[in-house]
Computed example of a mutant assay.
Amino acid sequence: MNRVSSFLFWVALVAVLVFITLPIIVVLAASFSPTSEVTLDPRAWTFRWYGDLLHPRWLEPFWLSVKIAVIVSAISGLAGLMAAYAIVFERFPKSDVVMSFLLSPLSVPQIVKGVAVVLFISQLGLQQFLGTEALIAAHVVLTLPFVTRMVAGSIANFDRGLDQAAQILGAGRFDRLRFILLPLIKPGLLSGVTFAFIISFNNIPLSVFLVRPGDTTLPIKVINHLEYSLDPVMAAVNVASMIFILAAIFIFEKIGGFSAQLHGGSK
């Protein structure tokens, strides 16, 4: 029975891995294809589609997406840290209600949030802020729950005895926060910031309502391009975006070691 269970486990594992990696392999092969048809013969592959990514029509949306993602992750990281600290560490009255309020955007579909933001801006007569400003604000609303929840989990696992010992030794609130709490919850904070960066950079359902000519993010640019043509440059854009996201995750991991958060520890 154990052998049968082990065999079924490995079969299921291989099937899942194939299901995940096969689309990536197809997209990767398409990005090297000399024509719009996917060519699996490496001898016919070309890198010219990646050269097209250096054109301003792709570079400008890319840098705009990066700028928005950096700003959003910074704002969400700071706001999520302060909210989690107040809710979990200080435990003020009705903190559970505040936490539920901060996590409530997770229960609303992104398309609904996009429509709501557009209607809200229109009702206030602030249509001139549609574009980068509205994208940043909407993305913060979208990513803040992830950061808050991850930081709150790190603070919940924090050993309060360390804070009490530092307080007995004369450390002030700011010193205890800077030298004791922050270093120990850094994996949770960095994991939340990483999630915020990735979600903001790749967002489509929310961004599609808020972009304006001249302020188009890379995912929306890809969607607009697909309306008129389907060529290997789309595959090259997706492969380059995937490599960029993996590089960003690697950098965040080296800075904060947030993978330790997955094992309930700190690095």
Rank of each mutant, 00 (worst) to 15 (best):
residue 197 F to M: 07
residue 177 L to P: 07
residue 180 I to W: 02
residue 177 L to E: 02
residue 149 R to M: 14
residue 113 K to R: 12
residue 186 K to E: 04
residue 135 L to Q: 12
residue 107 S to R: 05
residue 178 R to L: 09
residue 183 P to T: 07
residue 128 Q to Y: 07
residue 162 L to I: 10
residue 176 R to M: 08
residue 129 F to H: 09
residue 163 D to T: 14
residue 134 A to I: 08
residue 198 I to P: 00
residue 137 A to F: 13
residue 141 V to E: 01
residue 188 G to T: 07
residue 108 V to I: 15
residue 153 G to K: 05
residue 167 Q to V: 07
residue 198 I to F: 00
residue 186 K to F: 13
residue 181 L to I: 15
residue 126 L to M: 15
residue 121 I to R: 07
residue 140 V to T: 13
residue 171 A to Y: 12
residue 193 V to F: 09
residue 202 N to L: 11
residue 176 R to L: 06
residue 113 K to W: 03
residue 169 L to G: 03
residue 170 G to E: 04
residue 155 I to H: 00
residue 144 L to Q: 04
residue 203 N to L: 04
residue 190 L to N: 05
residue 154 S to D: 01
residue 111 I to A: 06
residue 189 L to T: 05
residue 104 S to V: 08
residue 111 I to N: 01
residue 163 D to H: 05
residue 165 A to Q: 06
residue 100 S to V: 06
residue 109 P to A: 10
residue 185 I to N: 00
residue 125 G to M: 04
residue 195 F to Q: 10
residue 175 D to R: 14
residue 154 S to W: 03
residue 202 N to C: 09
residue 161 G to S: 12
residue 171 A to F: 13
residue 105 P to A: 11
residue 99 M to F: 13
residue 113 K to S: 10
residue 177 L to Y: 11
residue 112 V to W: 09
residue 178 R to W: 14
residue 115 V to A: 10
residue 203 N to T: 12
residue 146 F to G: 05
residue 143 T to L: 02
residue 184 L to Q: 15
residue 148 T to G: 11
residue 131 G to H: 07
residue 173 R to E: 06
residue 184 L to G: 10
residue 108 V to P: 00
residue 125 G to C: 10
residue 145 P to M: 05
residue 161 G to V: 02
residue 142 L to K: 03
residue 180 I to V: 15
residue 141 V to G: 13
residue 181 L to D: 00
residue 170 G to H: 01
residue 135 L to P: 01
residue 142 L to N: 11
residue 122 S to A: 14
residue 171 A to C: 09
residue 118 V to A: 01
